[in-house]
């Protein structure tokens, strides 16, 4: 069992080498507040900016509904991702798992005539299974989680092509599309509320249960967690199973939105999910991956993209925006985390 206190991909420990001391910050409450809500502020500014430039298309109910509804799948995916990120593990397979889940629903329901309920259950189970395999390699064999999940993701991508024969499969039961996208509440498709529900649930777990505290301790100090009697490996494994299952749920929402599953959509979701997770870690609870921040980040990003598209930007703007956002978000979250973690060693 690998129980070492290795340097974790998502939780870079600040190494205080001789030259590594930087100035300590002493923060006033106002700065703390500004930092927590900076992203919310930026979101509002962005919305006002686009409303001003495109007064007849941007600030409309239709556009709001589109923005909020269309992102449920990415939002849920991001929420799944932050669980292993919290325990200090990477999960690069989430997007492929969600794609697999979408494809399984389509293949089972459309090609094999399996009732939609059973198809969804099977899809969720496949996500849990992939997460379980990831976790087994990471905890039993002590392999780096980034490598394992990257490999598993690619493997899953192959499975998708295999079971779909590389075809887009459409015609999924409209029971699902009804429940996901067609039915609206307050003018917004139900899937938006599903994403919010998952976010709230995760918030509850992370903030209000002992498990949530344990997840953070495992991510921040493996050795401390182990010596405090936590089942570190079991917790990490569980986190990867959870991210697999929740990613599969994102896939169900995806297939429910379009009524179809295509074999290559997975790779397009990977970057947005990571961008949102890291951007989310810069707000609400700066320095920590947190569900509320993640949701805000998802909608911040899509607001920017859809606004730019309304201004006439081409499809490539999506790549520019998500790619740029990821790098900036990681930089920002690194800075805030540094502040949370830095102190000359554990200080005297």
């Amino acid at each position: 069992m690998a129980t070492g206190n290795s340097t974790l991909p998502s939780q870079p420990k600040v190494e205080t080498s001789r030259s590594g001391l930087s100035r300590g910050q002493d923060r006033k409450p106002i700065t703390v507040f500004a930092e927590r809500y900076a992203l919310v502020g930026a979101w509002i500014v962005l919305a006002i900016f686009f409303s001003f430039l495109r007064p007849d298309t941007f600030p409309t109910i239709g556009n709001l509904s589109a923005i909020l509804g269309s992102q449920a799948s990415i939002a849920v995916l991001t929420l799944g991702l932050i669980i292993p990120l919290t325990t200090g593990d990477m999960d690069a397979s989430v997007a492929f798992v969600s794609n697999l889940s979408a494809m399984m629903v389509a293949v089972l329901n459309v090609n094999l005539g399996v009732p939609i309920g059973w198809a969804i259950l099977a899809a969720l189970a496949s996500g849990a299974l992939v997460g379980g395999i990831n976790g087994a390699f990471v905890t039993i064999f002590g392999i780096d989680s980034f490598i394992v999940t990257l490999g598993m993701g690619t493997f899953v991508g192959g499975v998708i092509l295999l079971i779909s024969q590389s075809n887009t499969i459409s015609g999924v039961s409209d029971v699902l599309t009804q429940a996901v996208v067609i039915t609206q509440f307050l003018g917004i498709p139900l899937e938006f509320y599903y994403a919010i529900a998952v976010g709230l649930f995760l918030w509850y777990v992370l903030e209000w249960t002992p498990l949530g505290r344990r997840l953070i301790v495992v991510g921040r100090g493996r050795n401390v967690a182990r010596l405090s009697g936590l089942r570190v490996q079991r917790i990490r494994w569980g986190a990867l199973i959870a991210s697999g299952t929740i990613s599969a749920l994102a896939g169900v929402l995806y297939v429910g939105t379009s009524g179809a599953a295509d074999p290559t959509s997975g790779s397009q979701l990977l970057l947005p999910a990571f961008a949102a997770a890291y951007l989310g870690a810069t707000c609400i609870k700066p320095g920590r991956f947190n569900p509320i921040g993640s949701l805000i980040a998802v909608y911040f990003l899509v607001t920017g993209i859809s606004g730019l598209q309304l201004l006439g930007a081409q499809g490539y703007v999506q790549n520019l925006f998500y790619g740029g956002a990821l790098v900036i978000a990681v930089t920002l979250s690194q800075l805030t985390r540094k502040r949370e973690e830095i102190s000359p060693g554990n200080s005297q």
Binding site: P210, R213, I216, R220, G221, S228, G229, E341, S343, G345
Partner: peptide, 24 residues
């Protein structure tokens, strides 16, 4: 620093770790 405590978490989070269940 390495084995006893997590410096980036609060004092409460560190102290409560072995007895978290009792506050649930």
């Amino acid at each position: 620093g390495r084995d006893g405590s997590v410096g980036s978490l609060s004092v409460a989070d560190n102290i409560a770790l072995p007895v978290l269940g009792s506050y649930f």
